[in-house]
Amino acid sequence: MAKQGVVPDSLSQPFWDAANEERLVIQYCLDCDQLQHPPGDTCRGCSKGDELEWKTVSGRGTIYNYGVVHDCPVRLLQQDQPFNLAVIMLEEDPGIQMFSHLPGVPVDDVPVGAAVEVIFEPSANGQLVPEWRVVAD
């Protein structure tokens, strides 16, 4: 699916730079010993900003939940309707979620709980974007 391009900003630059290197990084608070996603200027746990860094994660997870989008507000995605939109839980911390269109999974036939691994797909302007595919048994 052709996603919109991405123009990294100062907060998200490390996330997108890592994606272009096919690595998944998540913001991490040293003080709280907690991952946080989406990223913020400060930690949502302790409100500190200077204890935040980016941590490379394994790129493994499981499918937590999903819906099927039939009426998408994003113009570029409308041609692909209906499509799966799943939420992935990271292996390192199931409380951390990421979205996925689950490429290769038939619409509305999503194996909730299945293991997935990150892949990287180009968006409209070439920026690589993390996506997730089901890991074969």
């Binding site: 919109q4 123009v7 819906g67 998408c72 507000p73």
Partner: peptide, 16 residues
């Protein structure tokens, strides 16, 4: 055709 990087982390996937 493109989104700023921070909102893109949540909005690229097009959930209504």
């Amino acid at each position: 055709d493109a989104l700023p990087g921070t909102p893109a982390i949540t909005q690229l996937w097009g959930g209504p």
